[in-house]
Design a protein around this nucleic acid. Structure first.
Lengths: 222, 222
DNA sequence: ACCTGAACACCGTTCAAGT
DNA sequence: ACCTGAACACCGTTCAAGT
C-alpha cells in the first residue's frame, strides 16, 4: 500500500494580503533583504509560491507594502506638542530609528520613489514647513531637500548593515575596517579622508544625522 | 565529414579588467542596471561567463568599479577657481549631471558605502569645507550631511528613471502620472502632498537639487 | 596564466489543474 | 474564488578541462 508523504502542516487561517505582508516583514527582519524569497515566504505561510500571487502583484509591490507598514506605524506615532522645528526633528529621528531597526526599509524607500511610504513622510514634513511659514513657492524644494537627506542617510545605513552582515562583522568591527581602509589611502591624494578616518569609530550615527537635519533647518530659517 | 559549428568571432585584444569595466559601463548605459549580466557581458566581450571571474571578483565589485570610473572622471574634471561655496556647488552639480547621464551610478553609490567612489566625493567636498573654515570637530558631520544629501537625490533620480523605463514612459509622462496619483489622494489625509502635486510637472530637478545644497551651505555659514 | 562552457543552486513568475 | 506545485526562463558563480 502506498502511503502519501506526510502532508505539510495545514495553516490555520486562510491567506490574505495582510498575513503575507506580516510574514514578509518578519522574514526581512530575520534574514535581511536577500532573505525575502517567494519560496521562503510561501514555506513560512505553509503554501506554494503561486498562492502569494493571488494577493500580491509581484515582489516589488510586496516590498513596498511591507515598507509602508513600517513607515505608517512610525508616522502615526503621536508626537508631543512642540515647535515645528522640533516636530521635524522628531519625524526625522523616527525614520532614522525605524530604519535602524529594519534596515531593509532604507533601501525599500529608495526603490519606491513617489509611492505611498515616501508620501507619508513628505506629508508630515510638509505640514510642519507650512507651520514654519515657508512661502508656498519654496515648500516643494524644501521638503524635497529634507526628504532626500533622510532617504540618503537611510540608504547608507541600510547598505552599511548589509555589508557588515555579508562579512559577518558587527557594527564596531565594520566601522573599524572602514576606518583602517581610509587610513591606508595615499596621503597625497586623500588627506581629508585620512584626517577624518581617525575620529570615525567613536562617532554617533544618530547625532550626525540630527546635525544634518539642523543644518538644513538653519538654512530654512534664514 | 562533420563540420565544426561556426566559431564565435575571435576577439581582437585579450581580456583585461579595464576592458571588462568599459564593456560593463556601455551595457549599463544601454540597458540599465538590470542589463548588466555576466552572460550579456561575456557575449559582448566574445568570451564565456567564467572568463570574467579571472579579472573581477564578483558582480558587486564590477558594479562598484564601473561606478568608480564615472565618479573619478567627474571628480577629476578641472574646476574654475572660485569660492569654496561655488566649488562645492560645482562638485555637487557634477555628480548630479553624471547620475543624470548614467542613472545606474546613483544606485551603485548607495550600495558601496565607504568605498572608493564615495571617498572621492567626500575628499573633494571635505577640502572645500576646510577652506571654508569649518572647525575640525564639525568637518565629519558636515561632509556627511552634504554627501548623504547628494546620495539621496542620486538614488531617487536613479529610481525614477528605472521606474519610468519599466513602464515605458518618458520623464514628462512619468512625472505626470505621479502628479495624478498624488492629486487623487484623500484630501483630509494628504492636503500637503496634494497642494504640491500641481506644480510638480514643471519643476526643474537640477534647480531643486541646487536649492538643497544651498540650504545646507547656508546652515554651515551660520 | 588565462580562458572555456557546462553544470549547480538558486531566483521571480506563470499557469494548468485542482478544490 | 482561491490555492497548488511543477515548469519556464532566467540569474551569479564554480570548476574541470583545455591552451
Amino acid at each position: 500500500m502506498v502511503k502519501k508523504p506526510a502532508a505539510t502542516p495545514r495553516r490555520e487561517e486562510s491567506l490574505s494580503r495582510g498575513r503575507i505582508i506580516e510574514a514578509a516583514i518578519a522574514l526581512l527582519d530575520e534574514a535581511g533583504e536577500s532573505g525575502l524569497t517567494f519560496r521562503a515566504l510561501s514555506q513560512r505561510l505553509a503554501t506554494g509560491p503561486g498562492a502569494i500571487y493571488w494577493h500580491v502583484a509581484n515582489k516589488s509591490e510586496l516590498l513596498t507594502a511591507a515598507c509602508d507598514t513600517i513607515v505608517a506605524r512610525t508616522m502615526d506615532a503621536p508626537l508631543a506638542d512642540a515647535t515645528p522645528e522640533d516636530t521635524i526633528r522628531a519625524i526625522a529621528l523616527g525614520m532614522f530609528d525605524a530604519i535602524d531597526e529594519h534596515p531593509w526599509v532604507g533601501s525599500a524607500l529608495t526603490h519606491a520613489p513617489g509611492q505611498l511610504p515616501v508620501i507619508r513622510i513628505l506629508e508630515r514634513l510638509g505640514r510642519q514647513l507650512q507651520a514654519l511659514g515657508v512661502p508656498q513657492a519654496c515648500q516643494w524644494r524644501t521638503v524635497s531637500a529634507l526628504l532626500n537627506y533622510i532617504l540618503g542617510v537611510g540608504g547608507q545605513n541600510a547598505a552599511n548593515r548589509q555589508f557588515a552582515q555579508a562579512e559577518g562583522l558587527d557594527r564596531t568591527e565594520f566601522l573599524g575596517s572602514v576606518a583602517n581602509a581610509w587610513s591606508d589611502l595615499d596621503p597625497d591624494d586623500y588627506p581629508f579622508a585620512r584626517s577624518v578616518a581617525g575620529l570615525f569609530p567613536d562617532h554617533d550615527d544618530r547625532e550626525d544625522f540630527l546635525f544634518g537635519v539642523d543644518l538644513i533647518l538653519r538654512g530654512v530659517g534664514t
